[in-house]
Design a binder for these strands. Structure first.
Lengths: 367, 367
DNA sequence: GTGAAAGCGCTAACAA
DNA sequence: TTGTTAGCGCTTTCAC
């Protein structure tokens, strides 16, 4: 059916352009552009011919040429440490969903936690003309960070783009960046309270990462809750092992060997909790009978841990959605704004009152 | 230091162009282009001045303009159902890593399993000039699918781009597409054999998805293993509940109520296994004492299930890396090629010989 | 070594 | 209603 294209010389790896469509339809390029954009009145008959030609040739517009003259495609970029982290993946999904629902293209980049790659990616997004750049995840807030972010913000802003900091602080309230994050301190406070209410007094925080804003806030919430229950500052025991399943496993193994005087663990996030749970099981101890464990984030599989994990639910997808929604809703007003999203505890089976008798420091592992 | 920029008129939301850099450096645009591209000899003194100006102005090239005249940025696009699936996320991470290591930009798009969105995304990638498009994940192979993919392949190819099918079949070996996938049948065969060797004879496959190529292959491997052990075809019991944790939970709950005559479950993937494990626990039964369970994919958290899951390891990240490596390695030769990646069993604690006495159909749930 | 000029594919005035 | 024209920001001959 009408594929006289076969006669045409082999278009050796060249995209078909608007000019070819115009020729085939017997109209000018401008007319083709008009029917394709659909923002200009064109009689149905011409319109049909153009559409027909475009379809026959399987024409797709060159987005770059279009971007050059028009404003460019509406594009949002999310930058994460890694997509394989369940929490980050959910945030990305939220951004993607909200962006897609508005007809925006979403690009996700990963840095592996390397500031250099982050910088390169932001640079890339500037080149590509992203209108919205969302940086996700806690960071250590040092001078280098502050300088970097100030630069991003200024550069993006002067190009008419917007910067959103998701779960990380703005170095300065005057900077043209929007921050959206969870109330880490409140969440940590609440879950620590949950442990305290169950009767625990020896609670260790596993997964500190000094300088990291998200973790520092959780530690602060933890300390505050301890203090409120009348415990002395020394009651706080923070293990700075960082995040990740492996770190949690390693630190917990060590802790069990060296420090017998605790009955509960507050893991910095659910992945740390997973590692801790595993280490406890390997040591022949049971959760929650011997030790109670709580996590943070409520990743989708937290319910499948052994035992199902009591944790703090941080609606990650909503965080992503909120980031783009707020940034797009009120562009001018958004700059410099700070939005705190709430969290709540999800009670499952990993917490119980502490056992009566203290356990041995390093019990024999059943074989 | 040297920020006489402050004197310049406010560049009201306009990106700085190469012309401004040229003016500031007192050279022509061509010269700026040359030093920035670095592919043309330029005296060190001029070079320094240009670099200086470029830095002062915080210039970044307009990628669209560049793409228009040059070949455009090397960009690979991965298309997945969703990033929050641990398996897909790992594949994406592999693609991203391999692409980044070669200086390619990686864009990930999600479809939610909707062919329409898939089509739109591929179209978008054509517009953006992606040089490599990777479609990931099994599909139901119907006529619509075959037609769609044939179209993608032809369109991409005629624009000089490449199409990779990851874990899904090429509708026709002559099509200019590369397929890279795991040997699902072999993996399923092996793990079914593992269950059979443990003494199980009543093994149900949970998570069939008729028409889906990946699942069909696993079912085929399952049936083949059964047959090899001398079991009649009726011994196969496939529950077509589809994938996902929720589906697995629902189907398993139902199965426990209605069908008491099985001792092991082969879940279509680890998420289904998670749901099944949960359902079994809710029914007051124990794994592996009462029922053995195996999964598929070995997602990172499979080890943290209750009990740790015996499953088939499909190196997802390697799948992603292989896809780009193969596609980029031997462009001409790659078209039409079919690469099968191997898998292996990971033995953990969810399999044990079947119990002696048959269990009740629907034991009382402990409350 | 460096500048002038052409043109990538497209859209948006401006004419007709 | 439709065509002609002038760029968008950049790279790349081709002269000088």
């Amino acid at each position: 059916m009408g594929n006289d294209m076969a006669e045409a010389e082999p278009t050796a790896k060249r995209r078909v352009t608007i000019r070819e469509v115009a020729e085939r339809a017997g109209v000018s390029m401008a007319t083709v552009s008009r029917v394709l954009s659909g923002n200009h009145p064109v009689p149905a008959s011409t319109r049909a011919r153009v559409l027909r030609a475009s379809r026959d040739l399987d024409y797709v517009a060159n987005a770059h040429a279009r971007a050059l003259v028009g404003g460019g495609r509406k594009m949002v970029a999310v930058v994460l440490r890694q997509v394989t982290s369940p929490f980050y993946a959910q945030v990305a999904e939220g951004v993607e969903a909200e962006a897609a629902s508005r007809g925006w293209l979403c690009l996700v980049g990963t840095t592996g936690g390397d500031p250099q790659r982050e910088l390169e990616f932001v640079q890339l997004m500037r080149e590509e003309g992203a209108r919205l750049v969302i940086l996700v995840g806690g960071v250590v807030e040092d001078d280098a960070y502050r300088e970097r972010v100030a630069h991003y913000a200024q550069a993006l802003d002067s190009a008419g783009a917007r910067l959103v900091l998701c779960g990380r602080p703005a170095p300065d309230p005057d900077i043209p960046a929007l921050v959206v994050e969870f109330d880490n301190e409140a969440g940590a406070h609440a879950i620590t309270g949950h442990l305290l209410s169950a009767g625990h007094r020896g609670i260790v925080f596993l997964g500190g990462l000094p300088g990291n804003t998200a973790l520092d806030a959780r530690v602060a919430g933890y300390r505050a809750a301890l203090a409120e229950h009348g415990l002395p500052p020394e009651a706080a025991h923070v293990v700075d092992c960082g995040l990740g399943r492996a770190a949690g496993h390693r630190a917990m193994t060590q802790l069990l060997k060296e420090t017998p005087d605790f009955t509960a663990v507050f893991a910095g996030d659910d992945m740390v909790a997973a590692g801790a749970l595993r280490a406890i099981a390997e040591a022949g101890l049971r959760v929650p009978d011997d030790i109670s464990v709580v996590g943070y984030n409520d990743i989708p599989l937290a319910e499948d841990f052994n035992p199902p994990l009591t944790t703090v639910r941080t609606p990650a997808e909503e965080l992503g959605r909120a980031a783009v929604r707020i940034a797009l809703r009120d562009p001018e007003h958004a700059a410099g704004a700070h939005h705190l999203l709430g969290t709540h505890i999800v009670v499952r089976d990993s917490v119980q009152p502490p056992p009566q008798a203290p356990r041995d420091a390093a019990p024999d592992r059943p074989h």
